[in-house]
Write a protein that binds this DNA or RNA. Structure first.
Lengths: 147, 147
DNA sequence: AAAATCACTTGCATTTTGCAAGTAAATTAA
DNA sequence: TTAATTTACTTGCAAAATGCAAGTGATTTT
């Protein structure tokens, strides 16, 4: 289905921008139902395997996950790492470009807290954000950027 | 194609959440390539007609625009207004729920400015945001919330 | 009255999504 | 050592969404 040259076509298509608008350009990379969920998971867990990402509550499909990981990797938001214990496993982590999406993730959380009913766990996370948003963002980014 | 009962099914489907996660719940409403572009346009222009929204640089298709407008309206992010001059025209504007997405839009702009080449116009907008982000957000929201 | 504009709707081809089975390489269990 | 399991995808297929362009009924303009 999706072989190397098909993928290249998709990737090249994504490089051709609908407009010069920053919002539009961004949505072309991660404006779908799944990509920010992957960013979310890597933000909270630092390094995850393909299998870890498959097991989330939202139950992403294998082909969608594979496709999104390749897109995010090719756009420089995530990178693959060698797994310390197993050649069969791949680890993914955010790049600095991906880490820079944390303020977006934080603002989405704040918006959602206002309009959705959330679990106590999510509520306490958001309470923590609200105590000092900028500090939360900075700490999260620093934590993710060190090895 | 999309009649009232088909639409109800779609809308009810969107109410059933993949998970309790705030990010996931949000993406289920506006996590696509087009919805935040509509929010963007209403943020900068306050009230727009269907035809105005069709004429943007990104060239959204008529069926996609119609579908997104209905979804955003049904989820309470935008509302329709009677046009002061014409029964043929409909005006759309952001509700407070939609206005509350401005911090998200702002953070996306800041992210994009770091990773894309932007026009001078967009650069100066972002320069203005950076001068005092919270003030920019507050002023934008207040401006949109008054009649 | 005819033509143009408006907000959609529709037909159709293409693309994407989602389900579930498949595959080759690596690892673990027997 | 062999067999079974795990891993990261890949694939086949049906359903759903997207995008192009024409269509439609109501309203407005010529």
């Amino acid at each position: 289905m999706q072989n190397a040259s098909d993928f290249t076509i998709d990737f090249m298509k994504a490089l051709k921008r609908r407009s010069q608008c920053p919002i539009s350009s961004s949505l072309e990379i991660w404006g779908d139902k799944w990509s920010l969920l992957i960013i979310r998971d890597l933000m909270f867990n630092k390094k995850l395997t393909y299998g870890d990402l498959l097991k989330t509550e939202e139950k992403i499909s294998t082909n969608i996950l594979a496709n999104r990981l390749v897109m995010l990797e090719n756009h420089g938001l995530i990178q693959k790492l060698v797994h310390p214990e197993s050649k069969a496993k791949v680890l993914y982590q955010l790049t600095p470009k991906g880490v820079d999406l944390i303020p977006v993730i934080v603002e989405i959380n704040l918006w959602a807290e206002k309009y959705f009913t959330l679990t106590e766990e999510k509520k306490s996370l958001i309470k923590e954000i609200k105590m000092d948003k900028e500090k939360f963002i900075l700490d999260s980014m620093n934590s993710l950027l060190q090895p």
